[in-house]
């Protein structure tokens, strides 16, 4: 496990708007290990999606990557993805690092068949004969549990159902056997029974192919189900990072605690839910010091003045909170 394939250090992504500079991601560091599912959880606008896209510089205007490094290991050599020339990065995108986005409908081009779109991905990164690529595409569709892949490969996206489309997208993203798959809310638009199929599929693929997955989501249940390690993001920062059991059993950061308490657990008898007071801060003028203090029930004076440092409370468990200032390793 202690074998990272991606090291993100002090990543900052700012959006330059007329209203001001939106600090969407502000000093984020984490590592993704080999063959693990790394969960990135947070609420809308916390910067989780921007973080996952910034790794391969997929940042739309007017966003800019201000600083940071994203070191990716290729054959025991580290390359900084943020400094790589665009044409070399393009070779990595789609072959070594691939994405599954939330909306499968817009991820597929309505003018081409499902099979062709996978073939296209294969040919973009490999020198193979189109006929071979076609049979590989069908093989991939079979692997993502699409029934009758030979027929489905010739269907156009509008002929496929939502769950089927999502699987085609998943197929296109694994066909080149990536080292790292970034799944951004992969099950948000699909039904619970289909979501169960997707979860099963992703874990199978992970074991089969030995790839790492960055799972970006706001769904605590999904994280509990799939992730090995979890990073909790709040207002552009990672406030806590630990393995999944620690996050759910012994969360340290007040935000993580709040997040876990406010999700209804269907297996428990609940009289009341415990919401987090207040609202998500404006990222143009974030609160001084710790960004969570205006909503935090345990805020102290220092929280308002100074941003908390990252404190390693135990092996692999880092929290950014003044409450644990003395208790680091």
């Amino acid at each position: 496990m202690s074998d990272p394939i991606l090291k993100v250090e002090d990543l900052r992504v700012y959006f330059y708007t007329y209203a001001g500079v939106v600090k969407a991601v502000d000093g984020v560091s984490f590592e993704v290990y080999n063959k693990e599912v790394f969960g990135l959880i947070g609420e809308t606008g916390c910067g989780k999606t921007v973080t996952s896209r910034a790794i391969t510089r997929l940042i739309p205007d007017p966003g800019r990557i201000e600083s940071g490094r994203a070191l990716f290991r290729i054959n025991s050599r580290w390359v900084d993805l943020l400094k790589l020339p665009e044409d070399e990065l393009r070779k990595i995108r789609g072959s070594m690092i691939t994405y599954v986005f939330q909306d499968p409908t817009s991820a597929l081009d309505p003018l081409y068949t499902a099979g062709y779109q996978i073939v296209e991905t294969i040919l973009a990164h490999n020198k193979t004969h189109p006929r071979e690529a076609w049979s590989k595409a069908i093989e991939t569709l079979r692997r993502v549990l699409i029934p009758e892949p030979e027929i489905r490969a010739r269907s156009y996206p509008h002929e496929l159902s939502g769950g089927m489309k999502q699987r085609v997208v998943a197929g296109a993203s694994i066909v080149n056997e990536p080292r790292l798959l970034v799944a951004d809310e992969p099950t948000t638009n699909v039904d619970v029974t289909i979501q169960a199929q997707m979860i099963e599929l992703l874990s199978q693929l992970k074991n089969l192919k030995g790839m790492s997955i960055i799972l970006v989501t706001h769904n605590m249940g999904l994280i509990a189900e799939m992730a090995d390690r979890v990073a909790v993001m709040y207002a552009g920062k990672i406030v806590e990072i630990a393995d999944v059991n620690t996050i759910f059993e012994e969360p340290l950061h007040p935000y993580t605690q709040g997040l876990i308490n406010c999700v209804p657990d269907p297996t428990k008898e609940l009289k009341e839910l415990y919401p987090i007071a207040g609202t998500v801060p404006d990222l143009i003028n974030p609160p001084s010091g710790c960004r969570f203090w205006p909503r935090c029930s345990r805020a102290m004076d220092i929280c308002k003045r100074e941003a908390p440092p990252g404190i390693n409370v135990s092996e692999g468990h880092r929290v950014e909170c003044w409450l644990y200032a003395g208790s680091g390793l």
Binding site: F15, Y16, T17, Y18, D61, P62
Partner: peptide
């Protein structure tokens, strides 16, 4: 488009 006007200016 209003947003793009607002955003497009540095």
């Amino acid at each position: 488009t209003r947003r793009s006007i607002e955003f497009g200016i540095k």
